[in-house]
Write a protein that binds this DNA or RNA. Structure first.
Lengths: 191, 191
DNA sequence: CCTGTTAGGAACCAATCGGTCTAGTAAACT
DNA sequence: AGTTTACTAGACCGATTGGTTCCTAACAGG
């Protein structure tokens, strides 16, 4: 009945996500997006409505591609919880080793956002992360004897540490210093 | 010989710092600055040259007014080091209690910057903070028996945790959750 | 008082911002 | 074949961006 779309929506969102990841929401202009996505203005606005709507979809994609795997790893019941927490930090550190200088789109957006819709979305993700840390801690032999309050505290602290790590991983990538800092926190969890 | 300036340079820089603190570098427009500083375009450009130069001076002012006191506190030899570290985190948490929703200009800038000059300046401040944490740890009875490498690790970790805390303190101020997270890290240092 | 210097205000600048719209064309369906 | 839709390319929009320039008023020294 009609001509089908010539670009994959999913693919376009992924490309947009990478542009936003690199330059931030404010730092990303329409020409940036068009070049990175390989489509034209008309197609972008027909498919996504506005820059902000596209950004919200890019955040969804980031959650799906990068947050969900981490949360799943933490929530999964295989191995003890401490090893799973270490693995999540290690994934971030290995990214830095591989030259990832963009940090984390979620963390970057927490720091940049002043829009209610955007703030709500990243805060929801942040809470998911803390919940997942808590679940992993519950299944960590060393920490499992903590009471509920202490578990909350430890989980909140892991989120703080994780966000700080990834913010500091932007730009210059002094990977060894970052790893040292994480090591101090993770030592007690490493089996 | 000439008409004297009608506004205080120091005062203007402080006002600019507060505007940048609230909206970030990219999010701050010239009209924002002019209104916040109470001067006009001509005066601003004559006195500061450019928006970026003004921002670098605002960063200097932030370092002077907010970073230096923290570093001095950490480096000062009064009391044991652990209490001094706790005091630095407490200062940030008390700010949140008092309704400070702008986070920390230094940490926000780390997350936002993509300019070499700006990045260099905030990284220098970040290193000062880590060095100060290390000094305080050295004078903390519990930690003073650590070897040099372990001290580096603990200091780097405190910086990570501090940055994460202050990034998460932007916007919504769920102060209790922030305090819980910090408490988990500081418990061992609290005498 | 006079002259040189500067502040201040506002007009002005080119460039870019996010966003809309139009043409003409290409592809799918009945 | 005819209809419908999405494609591309580009002009175009008003608003805003950071930055400049000019004119006038205020103040200093001689």
């Amino acid at each position: 009945m009609a001509r089908p779309r010539e670009f994959e929506l999913d693919d376009a969102v992924t490309k947009a996500m990478n542009v936003f990841w690199q330059h931030g929401y404010r730092g990303t202009s329409l020409p940036h997006l068009l070049e990175g996505m390989g489509i034209t203005r008309g197609s972008l606005y027909k498919a996504f409505g506005s820059k902000k709507d596209l950004f919200l979809r890019a955040l969804d994609r980031y959650e799906q591609d990068y947050v969900d795997p981490g949360v799943d790893l933490l929530m999964g019941a295989d191995g003890d919880g401490g090893k799973r927490i270490v693995a999540v930090f290690d994934t971030a550190l290995r990214g830095v080793d591989c030259g990832e200088t963009r940090g984390c789109l979620l963390c970057n957006t927490i720091a940049e956002a002043d829009d209610g819709d955007i703030t709500a979305q990243v805060q929801r993700m942040e809470e998911r992360l803390t919940t997942a840390f808590r679940k992993a801690l519950q299944e960590e032999p060393i920490a499992s004897d903590l009471d509920a309050d202490s578990l909350d505290e430890e989980a909140a602290n892991l989120t703080q540490n994780y966000v700080g790590l990834r913010i500091l991983a932007r730009g210059e990538n002094d990977a060894t210093a970052l790893r040292k800092g994480a090591e101090a926190r993770l030592r007690q969890l490493r089996g």
